[in-house]
Each structure stands twice: as C-alpha cells, then as structure tokens.
C-alpha cells in the first residue's frame, strides 16, 4: 500500500514538474555590437505557421475532439485570413540593419529548427541548437532568426471547458546568435494576445476576433522590428 502511495506521489511530482516549461529570459543587444567591425549578419526566418485556432488545456483525446468541434466555425474562418506582408519581415529587418551600416545577407531558404543538430556544449546564453554551420555555408558572423510559433486565435481550455474567450495571437521569438560562440547576443520573446472587449461570438465572419487577429499581427511585426531599432 505504501509503495503504491509512493509511486503515485512520484508520478505526480514528475507530472507537475514536467508541466513547467522553461522560457528564456529576454537578452538586450549590447551597444558594443554596433561598433564591431567585420561583422556580417544573416537574416533567416522559420517557416511561417499556418493560421490556426490553438486550444491549449484540451489535453485528452475526447477533450481535443470536443474543443475542435466547438471551434470549427472559427477555425474555418481563421483559415481565410491574410498574413499580409509577414513573409517580408526578414527583408524589412535586413533593410533596418543596412541603414545602420551593417553588412547583411538575407537567407531565402526557411529555417527548419528541428533539422539543426543540438548544441553539445553548455555556456551562458548558449543556444540549444547548433547554428555554427551557417558560419561556413553563408560566410556570416551572426545569424538573426525570426522564429514564429503561433499565428491565429488562442483559447485556453480545462479539459472540455473553455476557461477564456478566444484571442488573436502572434507568438514566437527573434534572436541574434554569435556564430563563433553559438550564444545569443539578443533574445526577444514575442507573445502578443489581443482580446475582444465585448462580444466575440459573431459567426460566420467574426469581425471582432478578426480585428483582434490583425491587431496581434501588427503588434507582433512591430515587436520584431523594435528589437533592432535602437
């Protein structure tokens, strides 16, 4: 009996600690970066995620099915929204750096982070993935990554039940990696959630939520550009 209690306790501790994901704290770009000579920055963007309705908290299979069925009209609408000039963000960011006198190379191929090897060494601000390969293939000293992870609508659930009204979401991060050391010289997490302050239930076109999505999109784009604006 005691062994069973111990096993349940252990399982609970493992489960609870597993829930807490670590998120990297922001790193502000050191002013010294702009003074560095002979630096060349490659700008790359991960594949833009498809517009989606994210339903975190609906974890069991039946819960997922119930939540997706409850939000099916919203999902159909979200798929029709436009991301406008979002794919041009790396060019916009590159132009911003060029104006500051930085040598820039825009890498056209989308970055697949899952295909990069893990970085073997531990150091302060070291990236988890090994970006050093870009040093050789693109002849650059730094890599500026725009990594988008969530785009569309976001609604939290507790099993079968929504715990919050949907919001427009734009999430990801943008970071600058020193390819000599594979460490972050800057890291800006992006988590933009925009709500509807009155009625969001307006099918089939959901104008309030659509506006919230475009608010999130514009705020997210502005956050990306502001990280290197100074």
């Amino acid at each position: 009996m005691n062994l069973r209690i111990l096993l349940v306790l252990l399982a609970t501790i493992v489960f609870v600690s597993g829930c807490a994901t670590t998120s990297r704290t922001p790193i502000v770009l050191n002013e010294g970066f702009w003074q560095q000579e002979e630096k060349k920055v490659g700008v790359v963007m991960t594949t833009i995620p498809e517009l989606n309705v994210y339903l975190p908290g609906a974890n069991c299979l039946l819960c997922i099915a119930a939540a997706e069925a409850a939000n099916s009209k919203l999902s159909a609408h979200v798929a029709r929204l436009s991301i406008e000039d979002l794919p041009k963000m790396k060019e916009l960011l590159a132009n911003q750096l060029i104006e500051k006198g930085v040598h820039v190379s825009v890498i056209k191929q989308p970055l697949e982070l899952s295909e990069l090897p893990k970085y073997k060494y531990s150091a302060e601000n070291a990236a988890k993935k090994d970006f050093t390969g870009f040093n050789k293939t693109n002849k650059i000293t730094h890599l500026l990554v725009i990594d988008l992870t969530m785009l569309g609508m976001h609604r939290t659930y507790s099993s079968y039940i929504p715990t919050r009204d949907p919001k427009g979401v734009f999430a990801g991060s943008t970071y600058l990696v020193n390819l000599d050391t594979n460490t972050y010289e800057s890291y800006t997490p992006i988590k933009v959630f925009k709500s509807v302050d009155d009625n969001w239930k307006e099918p089939p076109n959901y104008p309030g939520l659509t506006n919230a999505f475009y608010q999130a999109l514009e705020t997210g784009k502005a956050t990306i550009l502001s990280a290197f604006a100074k």
């Binding site: 908290g57 939290t156 039940i161 925009k194 302050d197």
Partner: peptide, 16 residues
Amino acid sequence: LVSYDDVEGGQYNMLY
C-alpha cells in the same frame, strides 16, 4: 476603459 488582453485562462486537467 478596460482591456482584456492580459486576462489569463487556466489550462489545467480536470478529473470528472
């Protein structure tokens, strides 16, 4: 004037 942008919702599993 109120904004609900920062309203968090719980994401927990419920045992029924």
